[in-house]
């Protein structure tokens, strides 16, 4: 598969490895299953792939891959029990696919300091691997948001249910504000941002797009910088467990709503059809793509992997 190293996701990342961060806010939306499946798709093309279970406190990526319970995990590195990130990498049964497990990691590990996080990211980036896939936890903790923002491609998994969509929006909103807040030190603008995060703010700012315009009216230079940063944010969207055409269309509606509300142009890279074979493979602790390689969900994920690499959306496929 052709591969383009250019920045096509979050406007960040490192040229040596392509980092994909898979998040979405809500637990149970299928992040681990899709991360492991995307990893398998990439490894089959001959690329070296490393999966990192960054769902600290709730890791289960090893189960989706059917690997034995790991002896070394990410927390061994974070707690400095081992000096090198390479010491916590384990091989899987799938060629070219390796894993850093998060099993045995507890919530206190999830509360890593900024320095620990930087150490982790630096070492990850220095690894000789072509793809690093980060399986993020649910919620909007700073760690999760920062891992999402550091990636070349941030991928959001949503199921076609109101609760999942609500959480995804909360996640996007948190990413949006995190990005802006980390950009500036100007206390006045920071106050405006914090104020605007409250929907019933005194300034009457209703949407993030309104916030950007408001900041621009106060300080043109900062406003422009903000807008440029937001334009770089192009998270990818996957709708999981679709049952109807209407479910697929929800992806287009989310894309439109995000553009009008956040000013963020989300890239709708595909959907995964609901099928009984998914939970059957999870129950057997066998990767979906190995257990049911010809199933519709497996084919959907293969197409999604291709779209992400090619930087395409499903609209362009004349779905």
């Amino acid at each position: 598969m052709p591969f383009d190293v250019k920045n096509n996701g979050n406007g960040s990342g490192h040229p040596r490895s392509q980092i994909w961060a898979i998040g979405g806010g809500k637990g149970g939306s299928g992040k681990s299953l899709i991360t492991s499946s995307l990893g398998i798709c990439l490894s089959r093309t001959g690329k070296e792939v490393l999966l990192v279970d960054a769902d600290l406190g709730g890791a289960n990526l090893h189960s989706c891959l059917g690997t034995p319970y790991p002896n070394v995990t990410l927390s061994d590195f974070i707690r400095k029990k081992v000096p090198d990130i390479k010491d916590v990498i384990i091989n899987t049964a799938i060629p070219n696919l390796r894993l850093i497990s998060g099993a045995e990691d507890y919530l206190e590990v999830a509360n890593t300091s900024y320095a620990q996080k930087i150490r982790l990211l630096r070492q990850l980036i220095s690894l000789d691997t072509e793809y690093i896939l980060l399986d993020l936890g649910a919620g909007t903790a700073f760690n999760t948001l920062d891992f999402f923002l550091i990636a070349n491609d941030g991928i959001i998994i949503v199921t076609p249910e109101p609760t999942s969509i609500e959480n995804a929006y909360r996640f996007i909103k948190s990413v949006f504000f995190r990005r802006l807040k980390r950009m500036i030190n100007d206390a006045r603008i920071r106050d405006i941002i914090v104020n605007a995060m409250d929907r019933k703010n005194e300034l009457g700012i209703r949407t993030p797009v309104e916030l950007l315009n408001y900041v621009e009216s106060i300080d043109n230079e900062i406003g422009q910088r903000f807008k440029n940063e937001v334009l770089k944010l192009r998270p990818k969207l996957i709708i999981n467990s679709v049952r109807t055409k209407g479910d697929i269309n929800i992806g287009f509606s989310i894309k439109s709503t995000c553009l009008k509300y956040f000013g963020i142009n989300i890239s709708y890279v595909g959907h995964v059809e609901y099928d009984e074979c998914v939970w059957q493979s999870v129950r057997r602790r066998r990767p979906l793509l190995l257990e049911y390689p010809n199933s519709r969900p497996a084919k959907c994920i293969e197409r999604i992997a291709k779209n992400i690499i090619m930087n395409k959306e499903i609209e362009e496929e004349h779905f």
């Binding site: 076609p160 929006y169 949407t207 929800i250 287009f252 509606s253 439109s256 709503t257 009008k260 509300y261």
Partner: peptide, 26 residues
């Protein structure tokens, strides 16, 4: 067609970000 589907008030994709009034405006 897509915009009508998205902002007509039936879609789960809009209600948590836009009020009904805003959807009508769109």
């Amino acid at each position: 067609r897509r915009a009508k589907e998205t902002y007509s008030g039936e879609s789960p994709a809009t209600y948590s970000l836009f009020t009904q009034e805003e959807c009508n405006e769109i």
